[in-house]
Write a protein that binds this DNA or RNA. Sequence first.
DNA 1: GCATAAACGAGACGGTACGTCCAGTCTTGTC
DNA 2: GACAAGACTGGACGTACCGTCTCGTTTATGC
Lengths: 210, 210, 210, 210
Amino acid sequence: MVSAMRNASPGRTGRPRSASADAAILAATRDALVELGWSKLTMSDVSARAGVAKTTLYRRWAGKSELVVDAVAELFDSLELPDRGSLEADIEYVVLRFAELLRRPEARTALMAVVSESTRDEALRDRIRSAIVDRQKRLVVLGRERAQARGELPYEEDEFLAGSTTDLIFDVIAGTVVHRALVSSEPVDELWVAAFTALLMHGLRGATAA
Amino acid sequence: MVSAMRNASPGRTGRPRSASADAAILAATRDALVELGWSKLTMSDVSARAGVAKTTLYRRWAGKSELVVDAVAELFDSLELPDRGSLEADIEYVVLRFAELLRRPEARTALMAVVSESTRDEALRDRIRSAIVDRQKRLVVLGRERAQARGELPYEEDEFLAGSTTDLIFDVIAGTVVHRALVSSEPVDELWVAAFTALLMHGLRGATAA
Amino acid sequence: MVSAMRNASPGRTGRPRSASADAAILAATRDALVELGWSKLTMSDVSARAGVAKTTLYRRWAGKSELVVDAVAELFDSLELPDRGSLEADIEYVVLRFAELLRRPEARTALMAVVSESTRDEALRDRIRSAIVDRQKRLVVLGRERAQARGELPYEEDEFLAGSTTDLIFDVIAGTVVHRALVSSEPVDELWVAAFTALLMHGLRGATAA
Amino acid sequence: MVSAMRNASPGRTGRPRSASADAAILAATRDALVELGWSKLTMSDVSARAGVAKTTLYRRWAGKSELVVDAVAELFDSLELPDRGSLEADIEYVVLRFAELLRRPEARTALMAVVSESTRDEALRDRIRSAIVDRQKRLVVLGRERAQARGELPYEEDEFLAGSTTDLIFDVIAGTVVHRALVSSEPVDELWVAAFTALLMHGLRGATAA
DNA sequence: GCATAAACGAGACGGTACGTCCAGTCTTGTC
DNA sequence: GACAAGACTGGACGTACCGTCTCGTTTATGC
């Protein structure tokens, strides 16, 4: 649970927070995002859908942005990286799954909106990083380890360099796919994925060889 | 001027639209974006800053999103690609200039916000594509032509393939830099740019060799 | 019109305030008072009944209290004092009419409520005085002049003394009737009015004789 | 104690109600009335001031109005009527004491507010009558008995008539003073009290003579 | 040069959502 | 079973913008 620590022992007295409310609110938020999009989503509407009072929302989240980050973070957690046999296949698989996720209206509209809001809000930026960015880097790390085990990529001794490379690859993959899908508004189909993966594979092999 | 045709001869009689108002409004919009960010920018505020009535805004733009697209599109037009002697140097240069642009608060906040809005608005998506995306692809085309002239890259006979590659490179560069800067919230410094450019160069050489 | 000066020439530009809205709002306020009473009357409800936006209410009145004072002030203006032939008959008549007015739920609930609010609000106190108290003193002044013309009461030379007496009689009549009707919650019937008038007549004759 | 019977033997098991809580709550209510006035007084605030949970308040009073009636009733009980030697002096004394009481903010704001609320609430009307009105009539009865003993007023054989007269005098005195102080917002000073008492004395003498 | 007609500023309009506050109830664990 | 604590539903608050509208005023052109 993304926001687990928010519920942890706020003291000991008083009525405890409803455990079921959190899940209902996040689900309602995703539903509302699908139907209304970010800009027409309202806290009132979410509270009504979740069968919860508006005060309950504000008691748990500071505002629309924070709520939506948590709501969509769960979506991104659904991404998996099964072993497809080769690094190339692994990359193609995860890019397609990610593109699929970005076709979901709640993900499309929410992701860019919260990033936009975060440009003026340090706390929100941290929340995005911890709830979304850092959590999904696991896919890059996992893919890399598998490729190293297969002998497709060399082991990197320098820990800092390894981290930098992980970050770079993550930004290249996630950024390129998001830009293709949301900014350029072009389809992320198998043809394009193959071309992108080829470019990336050459880049990786060339860079690690050097 | 992005919206030039909107002013063209609407008939013959009546008071013509103020030519100076457009520029004043777009400048006021950028100022307001810097100070307030996207979500707190209001049409009333822009009209007040521009010394113009609210009706005048709505007579020329359908809403906040359309106005902001035009306002920031001008920013992106300022990107240039002087010849730095090699493809590698050209890429490093443009990436650094682009990152610089993304450090400007009006660009940061506006770009992601209008992309988010565009997920539910076909017309806005088209406007972004024509006012921003397509206009900046010129940089990729120019860089490629120079590299081909230098012999760094082969000529591509197939026109469709050439277009696809241009699009791909554009998404990789723009997407990766935006993701690094705005989503991951990490600095786009010379070290990172060198690593990214190296990856991209290897990718390009490998892909075009195949 | 109680609030006439509020509408007077606020400048010259801009859309003028709707003239009909004022009347509709005051009527809606009285309706809501009848149905809901003071404490359950809400600005939202009034705006809905009047077919007017909430902002329009707040543009014209500072709050519930101010609105209600204006709304009920019109009720009190309906009190008249026809010549019943003698001071005694005039007093009995106006007391019965006043009691009748206080049986109307909008008057009962509103009068005491705004007086209560006014205990912490100098501006509201002034508004009550100018919109209700001072306007109804006319009845006392008129009754007194008629009684003097009939020879039932002597002319008072001293202007200050005349004013003081007017105020005193007004407070005695209005206060006693209000207290009987709203605090003691006893009926103001003909029997009681006769007894009260007798007391007051003796008081007046005795006091003016001295 | 106004609400004494509410605490009597609620059964036999369980923790008994705190005896000190009642007094603390009523005192806290009066404090809050002084600081905040009726409309801004909240049950939460009272409970916090009294160091008591909100549930404890609701266990003992049905709502704000009931609580406030009990809280201010105690104030009115403080009125006394020492023998000043003559009916006139007794009246002047009690009127001045009453006016003094009405200068206290908790009395001013609460009295009118609960009366206003009572216009739509039969039970509250009864509570006001029994807790405030009927208890203070004792002053009129006592003053009358003393005046009769002194020979200033005749004995009234008819018991019903005596009651009516008590009620009338009570409404005249209380109503006039309240109206002067709270509605007309004019000072109840010695000059005014003398004029009012003179009027009342003439009224009483004339009426009882007839 | 005078009428026509559109664009202009000002600001009121009906709506809608905001985030806060309070009412009154309910659910804990403690006394 | 009363108590302190505090989360709960529900709903009004007063504010802020939205995008539209209605004014009176200004500024081009075309007769």
